[in-house]
Design a protein around this nucleic acid. Sequence first.
DNA 1: TTATTATATCGTAATATTGCAATATAATAA
DNA 2: TTATTATATTGCAATATTACGATATAATAA
Lengths: 107, 107
Amino acid sequence: MGASKADFFTKEQNDLASLFKAMSHPARIAIIQYLLSVDSCICGDIVNELPLAQPTVSQHLKELKNAGVIQGNIDGTAICYCLNLETMQKIQHYFGEISSKLQKKCC
Amino acid sequence: MGASKADFFTKEQNDLASLFKAMSHPARIAIIQYLLSVDSCICGDIVNELPLAQPTVSQHLKELKNAGVIQGNIDGTAICYCLNLETMQKIQHYFGEISSKLQKKCC
DNA sequence: TTATTATATCGTAATATTGCAATATAATAA
DNA sequence: TTATTATATTGCAATATTACGATATAATAA
């Protein structure tokens, strides 16, 4: 046996888990924070910002993009990555709902 | 080589990644949603709510507790688990900050 | 055309996660 | 005391993730 019983859970549960999994690695958090720190979205130097090899960074960027955390647009020879505002707002809203429901309870 | 280069990232980056990792499995999302759906926090029947064996559920609960997503209090022979409001609010705030910074940018 | 530059993909070794049977622990009941 | 009930821990097989060298792709420059 081992990993993955995804079929027994709802699509919503699997989708949320995938979204959090995309952000469950410090390198990917670092990418998110870096994209937030630069003024524009033209960011061809993410590789130089991280203590990881170029293929590893490329792989992390792909995971963030697949999960909808970032968006990537081709810009000549470089790729222009930026955070996906809609996804960030969706997560904020999800935890806002949880927080307000929780406040009406015992703990 | 393989997994884990945690030493090269900041404590904040590692802590955030751990928090999201705790929520990166559909079974753990299902636990969060179930804890939210019951009125009180006396929940000795989480095992019956999930399509997983008791040791597996116990392991998932431990991970959620270690990450601060849930709190567990001993209640006689049962354990009383409930969501950690402070953690939920912290996540909401983090993505609120990201969203408002993003809105001042190009994309 | 041949560099050069930037990013992606492949292949694979190291490591981590997942799930559960078996077993242990702890509290209460009989 | 011996059940019974509820939860935790151990050990291990199956699977997934991580990291990167090697290589591929694609755009521009010389």
